[in-house]
Simulated assay, not measured.
Amino acid sequence: MYSPTPDDWHEANRARWDERVAIHAASDYYDLEAFLAGKDALRGFELAEVGDVTGRTLLHLQCHIGLDTLSWVRNGAAQVVGLDFSEPAVETARGLARSLGLSPERAAFVASDVYDAAQAVPDSAYDIVYTGLGALNWLPDVGRWAEVAASLVAPGGFLYLAEFHPVTDCLDDETGSRITYDYFSRDPWVDDSPGTYADFGAATVHNRSVEWQHPVGEVVSALAAAGLRIEFLHEHEATLFARYPALVRHPDGYYRFPADRPRIPMMYSVRASRPVSG
């Protein structure tokens, strides 16, 4: 039976993220010292698939503390805007931009719900609309997300999404080898785990979270229905963290199953463009 979405899902998720901003900023996981010294926060496949951003405008939806957003500036973007629903995250991102000597005209950050992005960002359209890993699971309605995101893509521009593959949430946590959970479930996943992925032992108070699983077909179809043309859908055999104990960290920093294990997709990426009006 379908489980209804809790009425306080938005408030619970925002309280959780607000509390974790300071923990993340101080963590080795984000390593702000290395970032400020020049370390690029973007993944290699993202840089390759997005391509040259020199001179282009870029909007980053659900940007958290802005490391990916600011990395696009380092890779040549003329102007970036990061949007997140957490005020502390946005303030941290603004502080990082100031530390890098970037003006608000070059790197701006806006506090807003992603569904309200079209009314919150300074421009009506961007050459690139980017959404990074670990974002869509916090949204109950991926169709509405696609409509908002697509509306902000300028003619001739594109949306790029990199995300964890939802099939990884269907396998058992102990071995990652048995199908345990329903891939097509529409039920919200309510959790109360303390800590955070950046510091599992951190003492936290606001631990309730509400998340959703969105099958890849649903995401791609939503983008197409919103008027974008799908250029590619790529599935990646690696992931960023030890999702299952059997995963092995490789020299490139990614985690993969051992060579004697069958592979599954653990991340995916989509690029979808808006045609130039004829």
Rank of each mutant, 00 (worst) to 15 (best):
G82V: 10
A118W: 04
V110I: 12
L159Q: 13
F184A: 08
G55A: 11
V110E: 09
C170G: 01
D182T: 05
R106W: 00
R144N: 07
L133M: 10
R74F: 00
T175Y: 07
Q62M: 14
P88D: 11
L159Y: 12
S103K: 00
H165F: 06
L61I: 15
D172S: 03
D192A: 00
A125G: 04
G143W: 04
F109E: 05
H64T: 10
D192C: 01
G157C: 13
G55D: 12
V121H: 11
S103P: 03
L100V: 01
W138C: 06
L136E: 10
H165I: 15
A97N: 04
G55W: 07
E87D: 14
T69G: 10
V73R: 13
D192E: 09
D187E: 13
W138A: 07
I179S: 02
A108R: 14
I65H: 06
L67H: 05
A150V: 11
A78K: 15
F158S: 15
A89F: 03
V129T: 09
S185F: 00
A118S: 13
D169M: 00
A150H: 06
P194E: 07
L58M: 14
I65C: 00
F164Q: 14
D169W: 04
V90T: 12
L133F: 12
G132S: 15
